[in-house]
Design a protein around this nucleic acid. Structure first.
Lengths: 114, 114
DNA sequence: GCAATCGTCAACCATTTGGTTGAATATGGG
DNA sequence: CCCATATTCAACCAAATGGTTGACGATTGC
């Protein structure tokens, strides 16, 4: 209970399905059903994942009509990013690296059956 | 099983005790017993936490004599940092922010009873 | 109005997680 | 050698996690 913001953020990011969802939302806002479409799990499971992401502040959900739109809230990553960079004091990061990651992650995260 | 590197990293970081341990190791290498000292949980519990951090590559453990030394491996954070920054494209991060975080985290992570 | 669509809720289940305790395995020192 | 120290192992436990299914409440459109 009452886990810290960092707890929630890192825990949310620890699941590959949730990271894949964030990657999808990076391209465009999506309805819950559309988020669920590429995954092999039930809509209810995706709905739970989205609730976890929303609770961590990583996405915002807005209901318009019967459709609930999900959009990325990248600012929520800043706190965690601050935390991590404080340790590493890394050189600047290049987009290439990030895109390589996304490619590797998406190549498998959408076929997880359990 | 066979969780990805990012899975392991983020999952390891999701626990406040483990983040507190990393913060401690930021200042100096430490023996397992000394790592455990400020916490209210058993040595075995800390030993498990350290194993999780080591498995995620966030620390290295080297046994010299009967003492097992733990040291930070900040490079392991780079992959996760790359991932996160790709989303946020944040402005440069200042050490002040990080230190503020550490202060807030340490002010409570060592009194968690369960 | 009524059926179809969108999404969540509730109950359930298996597995993982984070902790405990007590015994066991090094290792070091008098 | 024998005892203390340092750490892990093994068994156990409660609670959390990630999934399922079926029923349910909203909303839309014919």
């Amino acid at each position: 209970m009452s886990a810290s913001s960092l707890d929630l953020t890192f825990a949310a990011l620890a699941d590959p399905t949730r990271r894949a969802i964030l990657s999808m939302l990076l391209e465009d806002d999506m309805a819950v059903t559309d988020v669920a479409e590429p995954f092999e799990m039930s809509l209810a499971a995706i709905s739970k994942h989205l609730a976890i992401l929303a609770h961590a502040g990583l996405i915002a959900q807005e209901k318009r009509g019967r459709v609930k739109w999900c959009k990325l809230e990248p600012d929520a990553l800043r706190a965690a990013s601050v935390w991590m960079q404080g340790f590493g004091q890394f050189e600047p990061i290049h987009l290439d690296e990030f895109e390589a990651f996304l490619a590797r992650e998406l190549d498998g995260a959408d076929t997880q059956g359990g």
